[in-house]
């Protein structure tokens, strides 16, 4: 139970959640709730693994996974943006479809054997910094570093660029954005697509880097839903999303590691002597998601921060709304 190792693994596994959460942030910033993350992630994980098996190139797998997620997301975009259907039910149906396609096409994949993965690297110089070096810059997957880069980029994009401003306008007050000549429908389609790309990337990160392989529904094991919780916790902010994702990653690792030592905080470790108690530990990430939502809504209420005002509301031209 070395805290450095737990945090290092937390950053690695947290990267999956980070990608999915960033995707959710983009979609919800544009006013489209996206409950289909789990389905798109599973489809991404399957596609990445499958393409890598047949081509031998994990980067092609990664690209295919992102495209698969993006394509699937357009079903949700069409149903909610063009057909004005309920975003909650549409998102759920997307999860069903994504899971279904992934299971159908992934049927024989679990026997596919070893594939080449996205490489792990250490950053020279940075890896020598005490504490920070081993946690963030030593023997991490390339995708983890991509995660580091995406967070400030997303933050800058959302808050300090013109398209980012359009994105926020569409999510906060679509009718005003429309009157300024921003195409609300096209903007929303685009960011739902971006969310699909990110979800596919998150899925590929699981099957090509973090816990390689295809284990049907257990591949994602509900991480897509946890990411939706993190979107709310992050208050639609990429930096907070990063903190939340890595914390969750570390928690998942802690739950595994805590069952190892015989002594814990100077006491006999109950999880070592009674392994069945470990089942309660595996509940923790899910319980913690609920807890994080409580925290998120509490601090949001305190700072008067809220969801994008038009979140979940279909935009119909000429209709009285926001």
């Amino acid at each position: 139970m070395d805290p450095i190792i737990i945090l290092q693994a937390g950053v690695a596994t947290g990267t999956v959640l980070l990608f999915a959460t960033l995707g959710g942030i983009f979609s919800e910033r544009a006013g489209v709730m996206q409950l289909g993350l789990e389905g798109m992630m599973l489809l991404g994980a399957m596609t990445a693994f499958s393409v890598t098996v047949s081509t031998g190139n994990p980067w092609l797998g990664l690209l295919a996974a992102m495209l698969a997620g993006g394509l699937l997301s357009q079903i949700h975009a069409f149903i909610t943006i063009t057909l004005h259907a309920d975003q909650v039910v549409s998102g759920l149906s997307l999860t069903f479809v994504g899971t279904g396609i992934a299971l159908v096409f992934g049927e024989t994949l679990s026997k596919a054997g070893v594939i080449s993965l996205i490489p792990k690297i250490s950053v020279p110089v940075l890896t020598n910094i005490p504490v920070v070096g081993p946690i963030f810059f030593t023997n991490q997957s390339v995708l983890v570093y991509i995660g580091y880069a995406l967070v400030p980029l997303a933050w800058y994009y959302i808050y300090h660029t013109r398209p980012g401003m359009h994105l926020r306008a569409v999510g906060e007050q679509p009718s005003a954005a429309d009157s300024l000549g921003i195409n609300v429908f096209r903007t929303r389609y685009f960011y739902v697509f971006v969310c699909g790309l990110f979800s596919g990337l998150a899925g590929a990160t699981i099957s090509l880097a973090i816990s390689p392989g295809w284990f049907s529904e257990l591949t994602t094991a509900g991480q897509g839903w946890i990411a939706i919780g993190l979107v709310i916790f992050s208050q639609w902010d990429p930096v907070r999303a990063m903190v939340g994702s890595y914390t969750f990653g570390a928690l998942r690792r802690l739950v595994l590691d805590i069952q190892g030592p015989t002594m814990l905080l100077g006491m006999r470790n109950p999880f070592y002597y009674n392994p069945y108690l470990g089942i309660f530990l595996t509940m923790l990430p899910y319980a913690f998601t609920i807890f994080v939502l409580v925290l998120g809504s509490y601090s949001a209420a305190k700072k008067r921060l809220g969801a994008p005002a038009a979140l979940g509301i279909p935009y119909v031209r000429g209709e009285r709304g926001l």
Binding site: G39, I75, I79, V89, S90, L92, S93, L94, T95, F96, V97, G98, T99, G100, I101, A102, L103, V104, G106, E107
Partner: peptide, 13 residues
Amino acid sequence: SGVPKLIQGIILV
């Protein structure tokens, strides 16, 4: 084995 789930999803969509 994923077929029933997929058909359910398509029906809902």
